[in-house]
Design a protein around this nucleic acid. Sequence first.
DNA 1: ACTTATGTGGAGCGCTGATCCGGATAAGAC
DNA 2: GTCTTATCCGGATCAGCGCTCCACATAAGT
Lengths: 197, 197
Amino acid sequence: MRADARKNRDHLLAVAGTALTEQGVDVAMRDIARRADVGLATLLRHFPTREALLEALLHTSFDELTAKAGELETSSSPEEALVSWLRDCVAWTTEYRGVTVLMTAAIEDTESALHTSCVTLRAAGARLLARAQAAGTARTDIDGTDLFALIAALAWLGDQPSLAPRADHLFDVVASAILTGAASSDAEAERRPRARS
Amino acid sequence: MRADARKNRDHLLAVAGTALTEQGVDVAMRDIARRADVGLATLLRHFPTREALLEALLHTSFDELTAKAGELETSSSPEEALVSWLRDCVAWTTEYRGVTVLMTAAIEDTESALHTSCVTLRAAGARLLARAQAAGTARTDIDGTDLFALIAALAWLGDQPSLAPRADHLFDVVASAILTGAASSDAEAERRPRARS
DNA sequence: ACTTATGTGGAGCGCTGATCCGGATAAGAC
DNA sequence: GTCTTATCCGGATCAGCGCTCCACATAAGT
């Protein structure tokens, strides 16, 4: 890659990062190009689709989340690991408003630039879930795809301005549905723990 | 209203109904106008915004849902009434792909044509919830807005092609989180009843 | 210094929702 | 039955979107 191209690419990524966090993933591609003092065609050549741009921008975040899942698998109890990781996933999506819709579309579109990252993420969650299920602390009638769907739904809730204030609380509600509390001594405490703050 | 205007209005509503169920609420306004053999301006004068069109089209459905809530309040047990009504709400949204997003935006936008309908719907749900809470069969740390958010999230799940197959199952998961099963003799059966079909 | 392969960005396409305004027409007066 | 007028219609137009093409600028290699 030519030096000026590399420079443009890096600059575009930096500008896109701030633009996306400010205006959500639906920000106009033209706006990103304008803010980078670059033609729209240049942006679209480096990143032919919105998904491609997001992939380049978020793949380190994806890696961190999957890595986190691996760490939790050894450092925490199955139940704590699962819930903590779910919370991290949902919290992460709040930084990029609207990314949830693209991810749910990407997970079964093998052509999407985000496809692989999403599948990997789902697999990481499935492992944490299976571990908790084996320990008897998570209900056994859900799988990794269900978990992915629940994360997506909670993330979507956080994206809706009118529902966002309830997102944290509803996370606890849904989490209580995933956990059985079977092998936990404080099962009841886990079912209705966190009072409305 | 002049006779030709009334005729156009009715015709547009009929055409919009089929167009919306076929292509979702994001269908281009121009397409609706084209299918009705009418200029775009005509459609937009009768229904200045997409919300206005939807309100005219769906307000009978909204009325039916709130009426249904009233009936269930006297005909069924608090628990059954709540779950049955929630299921009806979620099922109804599947007929109009994408309507959930507009509804969540409308519920706190007093300018939206859908605002009143959404608020009424939330109130109907809140009453069913309060009744179940009074009977001790629904968790007491959620309110009508939380319920609305959960319905919206489940409806959104059904709108996503990749997650839709799990929507019914996840409805049961979330429903189990809302219900405590306290006053029910088959509490355990309610917590993990429906095997994956 | 010259050539060439590569990168660039303005112009233009088809699409969207929205607005304007000249012409068509139904409703009401006579 | 005719005429007036208030109402309604819809083609033309605008700004915005993602996207593509291609004449031109320029960095890299000889």
